[in-house]
Design a protein around this nucleic acid. Structure first.
Length: 548
RNA sequence: GGCGACGUAGCUCAGUUGGUAAGAGUGCUCGACUCAUAAUCGAGAGGUCGUGGGUUCGAGCCCCACCGUCGCUACCA
């Protein structure tokens, strides 16, 4: 194959303020893991990083409400998230948090570099202040009567009743969501990032991305129309966050959470490079970030597009010569059917719920088959179960089981040394080998649903081959040919399981224990004489509740 | 209000730059098979491609309007 490429698999940083649901999983984390696993099999050097986003107002407010420290909130949810990654088999090279010293230092370094280059300046602005909570308030934390429709509980940024976008200054009888007090307008001074400096460069950058998904490019370009990007404050009046590396503004101010969160991709790469997990040395991160040869792929939900297609590239441009995102295959949303039925029927199914109900690989399979790559996709608990039973278990699980059973029974419990040479034997193995190429092309485009279909097609070809050759019948009439057929079928499985590995890591490991570790993105030769025991099914069927 | 995406078989979705009588999986019907988790394989039925106009020799793909769903709208992350 060609030379290994350094691939950065950058995955959206989950906000450590609550439990994640399977929409998040299908939107970013699962596709990232599938892609990363395949890229490793291909032989590329994959660095897959993310972490919990631990700063921001919601966490600070929640901590105050519960009478605990923000760190307690973060520890609770970070712990939950980390344990779920393990259960789901998400193969991070590093999953960290934005609460590390390393991250703070690198964020501050980037801030200083941009300040030095003139892309950061100070401005005074008016903001709402809660005199009781003694805290500046984001628009969303101000409520009042909607000036358009009179709705009493409109938020400062938007009215939930009439849907109009609002400015908190227009609210009638505004009150703080935190204390109920009437907010006051106060002047406050903040650092602004001059995103407007990069409007033209970003236009050029986006225009060069002709292969991106249309909804990603169009959406990002929409922000650049007319006056282009607006400068944004990158500091906040809050105690919980990263210190501003210059003290001009006085106390009580920190760096804004989203300015620092995206820097996590860079800081996590450096943390990984310096860790024991990497034998390549502390400067190894430069092979991803200071190299034109590397490839950066960002896995995010569509709500994150402006941050990754605009703000983050602008921050990178302002900091120096760092590698920009090469592709951002942002997914749309997974939506839930039967929203009014009940939580147990799939409405807002959390990752924890889903893991209680489904085998990890089975869950991965069902979500991968429904990835919202082009459009929002509807799922329900029934639909997930249906996919597991009718597609995964019936086609792939059963294929493995039927072949291993026959080999165990008819070939003295070991892999026979009887490769077949009939035309149909070659045809099947050629089809499996071709599937690697076909699926590989889909991975290059990050079309993971299509890659999964390719693997399923190969499994179906193997099932068809068995039905056509009927080894169970040959066993009585022509045992030599029967063992050729079984050898061929097992060879096919030996390839197909590699095609499935990115989707089904746990059961693929089970098969590796029998068939040996795959050596790459291809079908390995069988090792004759390897013992094959009576198999236990890889997957169990899901018991479906009666749909009503 | 503005912007964007979507609306294709009962269900979940594919349909590259417009071009042979519109596809997959699943479900349904029929047939084959019985090694295998009542699993598999084959065949078939099933669609006015949201509606109405327009461009074109030709449109699911392009343009306009409308209807519906969802998202974003820059101090939520």
């Amino acid at each position: 194959m060609s030379n290994p490429v350094n691939v950065l698999v950058a995955v959206a940083w989950p906000y450590a303020s609550g439990s994640r649901h399977i929409g998040h999983l299908a939107g970013a984390y699962l596709p990232a893991d599938i892609f990363a696993r395949q890229q490793r099999l291909v032989g590329n050097r994959v660095l897959m990083v993310s972490g919990s986003d631990v700063h921001g107002t919601p966490i600070a407010v929640r901590a105050e409400a519960e009478g605990v420290s923000p760190q307690d909130i973060v520890d609770r949810y970070h712990g939950e998230i980390v344990s779920q990654w393990e259960q789901l088999g998400i193969s991070w090279d590093l999953y960290t948090t934005t609460g590390t010293e390393n991250h703070a230092r690198i964020t501050q370094e980037m801030f200083l570099a941009q300040l030095e280059r003139g892309h950061i300046d100070k401005r005074v602005s008016d903001q709402f202040f809660d005199p009781e909570a003694e805290r500046f308030l984001p628009d969303r934390f101000i409520e009042g009567e909607c000036p358009n429709c009179g709705y009493g509980d409109a938020r400062g940024d938007q009215c939930d009743n009439c849907g109009r976008t609002l400015d908190p200054i227009d609210l009638i009888n505004p009150r703080s969501k935190l204390s109920g007090a009437t907010p006051e307008r106060r002047q406050t001074e903040h650092f602004f990032y001059r995103y407007s400096d990069f409007t033209e460069k970003l236009r050029t950058y986006l225009n060069s991305k002709t292969d991106w998904r249309p909804h990603v490019v169009n959406f990002a370009k929409g922000w650049l129309e007319d006056e282009g990007l607006l400068d944004r404050a990158i500091t906040r009046d809050i105690d919980w966050g990263i210190d501003i590396p210059v003290d001009d503004l006085g106390p009580g101010k920190k760096i804004y959470v989203w300015y620092d969160a995206v820097i996590g991709y860079l800081s996590a790469s450096q943390e990984w490079a310096s860790s024991d997990a990497n034998p390549g040395g502390a400067d190894d991160w430069k092979n991803w970030w200071e190299s034109d040869e590397s490839r950066h792929v960002y896995f995010i939900g569509k709500d994150n597009i402006p941050f990754h297609a605009l703000f983050w590239p602008a921050q990178l441009m302002g900091a120096g010569d760092l590698h920009l995102p090469d592709s951002i295959p942002a997914n749309q949303y997974v939506t839930f059917k039967g929203g009014k039925a009940s939580a147990s029927r799939g409405v807002g199914l959390t990752i924890a719920d889903a893991l209680d109900t489904f085998q990890p690989d089975a869950l991965r399979f069902a979500l991968a088959a429904a990835l919202p790559e082009q459009a929002d996709t509807e799922v329900s608990e029934e639909e997930i179960g249906r996919r597991i039973n009718e597609e995964l278990v019936a086609t792939w699980g059963n294929l493995v089981n039927r072949v291993l059973s026959m080999v165990n029974k008819n070939c003295d419990g070991q892999i026979p040394d009887t490769p077949g040479s009939a035309p149909e034997d070659h045809e099947l193995l050629a089809a499996v080998d071709a599937a690697f190429e076909e699926a590989g092309a889909f991975y290059e485009e990050v079309e993971l649903k299509a890659a999964l279909r390719t693997a399923m097609k190969a499994a179906q070809a193997a099932n068809g081959y068995l039905n056509a050759t009927e080894p169970w019948r040959l066993q009585k009439t022509d045992p030599v040919r029967a063992s050729e057929v079984l050898h061929t079928a097992l060879s096919a499985i030996n390839g197909v399981r590699v095609l499935f590995e990115p989707f089904l890591p746990f059961t693929s490991d089970q098969l590796s224990a029998v068939l040996g570790q795959p050596t790459g993105w291809h079908r390995d030769a069988l090792v004759a004489g390897t013992p094959i025991d009576k198999p236990t099914p890889l997957f169990t069927k899901v018991e479906l509740a009666e749909a009503d």
